[in-house]
């Protein structure tokens, strides 16, 4: 693997390899000094054309824990504002000798375009409505951590699937790993040709909830109201929001997930976000380890895992 562009491009074995690798970095992240020399001398640049705090910080933390140097190309204060093209920006950054570009862009496909222009590894940190592969990997990892395996699980993905890169990546990842997925949304928020996706479709959340092992709530964006996709947020919450009353329909062992940032009181009730079946904080925590695994796989090629990740000093001393 030389880039991570989408989940759809990956085989089940690729996804499993990344999740297995993540175990090692979860262990590293739990150490008192969560830092290993695996990517010393490598440079990772984050090129974010869209505002994002959590994903960018997660990637930067991951790179730093691997001892890579990190650069942050801030689009809002850069030459892009002066009209520089995407290609020129990419070539300029690459000329500085970087090894990896972590890119987020509002336009689908930009990571593919970058791979045509640069030799550096490209990691898709979200392209338009298309894909957000590391989010899907951390979601899978979190579910695996909680449940052991996704095989045979039933997962409901609820909300604005049409405009969601998280949904596209999660559908691909969950089904590759053997889960059954039901998307639950009003028809206006489903992508075209939904029948070509490997999912079931429902417009009745109450009917779906009792049978799911996990419910994944997507963020509902306010601008969807102005596009006549929904009458109001109030109506959305009353039909598709995970309210306290509706959560009663969930099995006791069902898991609640959300990619963040949450609109408390819209797609998810604030009390549910905080309750014990919710793994929303685990998702964020695992995000760093998953991204360490991705960066290590792309940039640490050839290096032996045990040399790259030496046991921590405390362990050595106790040994």
């Amino acid at each position: 693997m030389s880039d991570l562009l989408s989940i759809s491009d990956l085989e089940r074995a690729d996804v499993e390899q990344l999740l297995d690798l993540t175990d090692h970095f979860v262990e590293v992240s739990a150490r008192p000094i969560p830092k290993v020399p695996a990517l010393r001398g490598k440079t990772v640049v984050s090129l974010f054309y869209e505002d994002s705090t959590r994903t960018r910080l997660s990637f930067e933390t991951a790179a730093k824990r691997l001892s890579a140097d990190t650069m942050n190309f801030s689009v809002s204060t850069s030459s892009v504002k002066k009209g520089e093209s995407l290609r020129d920006t990419a070539l300029t950054i690459e000329a500085m000798g970087i090894d990896c570009i972590v890119v987020r862009h509002k336009s689908a496909g930009v990571p593919w375009q970058l791979t045509r222009w640069v030799d550096a590894a490209v990691v898709n940190a979200g392209d338009g409505w298309h894909e957000h592969p590391t989010q899907a990997l951390l979601d899978c990892y979190t579910l695996r951590q909680k449940r052991g395996s996704l095989d045979g699980m039933h997962i409901a993905i609820v909300g604005d699937v049409k405009h969601s890169r998280v949904a596209r990546s999660d559908i691909a990842a969950f089904t590759k790993l053997g889960a059954e997925v039901t998307v639950v949304a009003p028809p206006t928020l489903l992508p075209p040709a939904i029948e070509t996706y490997p999912v079931k479709v429902s417009h009745d959340l109450d009917a779906v909830l009792p049978s799911v092992d996990a419910v994944y709530l997507l963020r509902m964006q306010r601008e969807r109201m102005t596009e006549a996709l929904l009458p109001s947020l109030r109506e959305y919450t009353s039909t598709y929001g995970l309210t306290v009353a509706r959560a009663e329909l969930l099995r006791d062992d069902a898991t609640v997930m959300h990619p963040g940032p949450m609109n408390r009181g819209v797609e998810i009730d604030g009390d549910i976000a905080d309750f014990d079946r919710s793994v929303i904080v685990d998702q964020v925590r695992n995000g760093v380890s998953v991204r360490m695994a991705v960066l290590f796989l792309l940039l640490g090629s050839g290096s032996d895992l045990h040399n790259a990740i030496p046991a921590s000093e405390s362990e050595e001393r106790s040994a």
Partner: peptide, 9 residues
Amino acid sequence: GEWSSRLGI
């Protein structure tokens, strides 16, 4: 259609 949907365009 199927392709715009898959590509997120």
